[in-house]
């Protein structure tokens, strides 16, 4: 616990505490990589084990998934813009771009929920086969992360509107931006290794 505060550099890195928290979050993301890797591995092992349920090639639709991908990738970009505004010290710019980010994230979630319900109607649920268990848990874990991230971001926006951009709030916001980009990276892998491969094979 050092109390020295630097006067230069990005706000979130100026205190020792800020630096440590950010490093801790990077390590946490490392653990998250392992967590998702395990889910991807499980999914890969169970690929094709659809039992009596429909196959992914029958159900996956390129349209929906492309829209979801577009929404999430754009949200990652706008999240970057929000951090850029934070560095400029603009609460207004930060809030505006983060709200755009969250709307895009909510859109993504909406499509995902629609997609899951659609699959369930077609006879592919978490219970119908090992493959679909793997699919729903992998995509669902990502979706759950997005949901948590949205709630968390709203709480942070509220805090920033009350406290402005300080060493502490900028650290918090920087961390959620890392989290948001991370979810984007995971989605790229889901898009390619689940949807694209699922549609082809």
């Amino acid at each position: 616990m050092s109390e020295e505060v630097k006067t230069t550099g990005p706000l979130e890195y100026r205190t020792n505490e800020g630096q440590m928290t950010i490093l801790g979050f990077w390590i946490f993301l490392g653990a998250e990589v392992v967590l998702f890797s395990t889910l991807f591995a499980t999914y890969a092992v169970l690929f094709g084990r659809t039992a009596d349920a429909p196959t992914p090639a029958e159900l996956f639709e390129p349209g929906t998934v492309l829209i979801m991908t577009f929404l999430l990738l754009t949200s990652s970009f706008t999240c970057g813009l929000a951090v850029h505004e934070m560095r400029r010290g603009s609460v207004k710019g930060l809030t505006r771009w983060m709200l755009v980010t969250l709307v895009l994230g909510l859109g993504f979630l909406g499509f995902e929920i629609y997609e899951f319900i659609h699959y369930a109607h077609e006879g592919a649920t978490i219970q119908s086969s090992a493959y679909w268990s793997g699919f729903f848990i992998l995509a669902g874990t990502h979706g759950l992360h997005v949901t948590l991230g949205i709630g968390w971001a709203f709480a942070l926006l509220h805090q920033i509107s009350k406290r402005g951009i300080t060493n502490v709030t900028s650290r918090k916001f920087f961390i959620i931006s890392l989290y948001w980009h991370f979810l984007d990276v995971i989605w790229i892998f889901i898009f390619t290794s689940v949807y694209l491969i699922g549609m082809v094979l």
Binding site: T42, L46, A51, I126, A130, Y131, S133, G134, I137
Partner: peptide, 18 residues
């Protein structure tokens, strides 16, 4: 846990679990 409580098929003998 999900297998046991919510009926998924990861490790079961039915539903082509492993």
């Amino acid at each position: 846990t999900i297998d046991r409580i919510f009926g998924s098929q990861f490790f079961t003998l039915t539903g082509e679990g492993l």
